[in-house]
Design a protein around this nucleic acid. Structure first.
Lengths: 212, 212
DNA sequence: GCATAGTTATAACGCCGCTATGTATCCTTG
DNA sequence: CAAGGATACATAGCGGCGTTATAACTATGC
């Protein structure tokens, strides 16, 4: 028919349409035919630019990590390093709630077979390193005892991931999720050596002052 | 063709075949046509007995909770209530690793639209109540401070769920997962009021003795 | 003995991911 | 500028998917 004026960036259009379909209509809307209709192309576009739906999903996953990185970088730095971790956690949760299906794609498959370039690798790893750095600041400020910042960050990440996943699946209501996140953060901080009074002040908010 | 001798329990056969296909070949093998072939029936069987693939998935989910309950009930009781929680957590993780796709189905959709009978509700809730009871024993033994056993159990469950999910998705290696689980359990216990020396002994195993 | 309810097989509808094929466009090279 | 190869594209088709309508079969209750 009418040969299209050769959109120079069909690839970007596909990723954007895919992310939009995913957040607006859920995973079932993410099909080659629907995507093709959406960007005004044929289903072949997906195969020319990505190789298949699987590779397109990893591209969407990277888009999800990009959004997460943007949120984490937008967290204002504070004097209180423990409060900084709390702020990071809240930004992490807000991102997941704002892009639930994107979040599920990000953490739903093995990252080792994503086959991404070094720049994308650094970007995705950077989202975790933001947390590692925040933990390191807590250690240097002597708010928590000396230890492996990477391992401690892994504890916090896994914990928050669990809460967020249960919240996204409906096993935890929103208020339960917030309460659990605050309490677990408090307990982790104290378990890592922070003083309860300091930890409570850093977390603030919904943490019941009667506890401990 | 030849009218089958009317298997009195096609329903059970379908659930068993579905659970087997899920664990042996993954989610993509769980189709109406494959199930029909597997139990020697037509695809209509799924609709007569369940209503559709969605309802069949909730039936599989219940089977997953049944297996989890069996594992949790098989945990030997101990004098040390904190060690009891650790043992429950390890049984929980073992169950998830033994039935990864079943585990994903269990926690992959909103439980409120499962539409299960009261017996199944009690069974699924019971798996969580096992943990709540174990927490309550810790409180009564004064190993951890007074508090809402339900809320504390939710913290531990969410934490372990996060670790297990990251492990199933390949974001955490097995040894990292075990280490993270031990460390986070230690930190949670101490944060909740347990003495570090007692907590370390209750967890035992891979927990680095140099910490704290 | 017969109606009624429940279960089943068959066939079809509109989707899906994916591929083979022919064609049109762009970029290189002389 | 012209020739030629690489790239991107639309079309059409394959087998498979969930689901539904229909008709035939079985089993139960009067």
């Amino acid at each position: 028919m009418s040969p299209k004026p050769a959109d120079p960036n069909v690839r970007t259009a596909l990723v954007e349409a895919a992310a939009r379909l995913l957040t607006e209509e859920g995973p079932s809307a993410l099909t080659t035919r629907r995507l093709a209709r959406e960007v005004g192309a044929s289903t072949m576009a997906v195969y020319t630019h990505f190789g298949g739906m699987e590779e397109l999903r990893t591209a969407i996953s990277l888009e999800g990590f990009r959004r997460l990185a943007r949120r984490l970088n937008g967290v204002a730095s504070t004097d209180d390093p423990v409060a900084g971790i709390v702020a990071l956690g809240r930004a992490y949760r807000r991102n997941a709630l704002a892009n639930p299906d994107l979040y599920r794609v990000m953490f739903g498959s093995h990252p080792e077979d994503w086959a991404m370039g070094p720049a994308d690798q650094a970007m995705t790893l950077g989202t975790f390193m933001t947390l590692v750095d925040a933990v390191q600041r807590c250690i240097e400020a002597k708010r928590i005892g000396p230890g492996d910042a990477w391992a401690i960050a892994a504890q916090m990440w896994a914990t928050l991931h669990g809460i967020v996943m249960l919240e996204l699946s409906g096993f935890l209501g929103h208020s339960d999720a917030v309460r659990t996140a605050d309490e677990v953060t408090f307990n982790l901080a104290v378990g890592l050596g922070d003083q309860p009074a300091l930890a409570r002040r850093s977390i603030g908010g919904a943490l019941a002052p009667s506890e401990h």
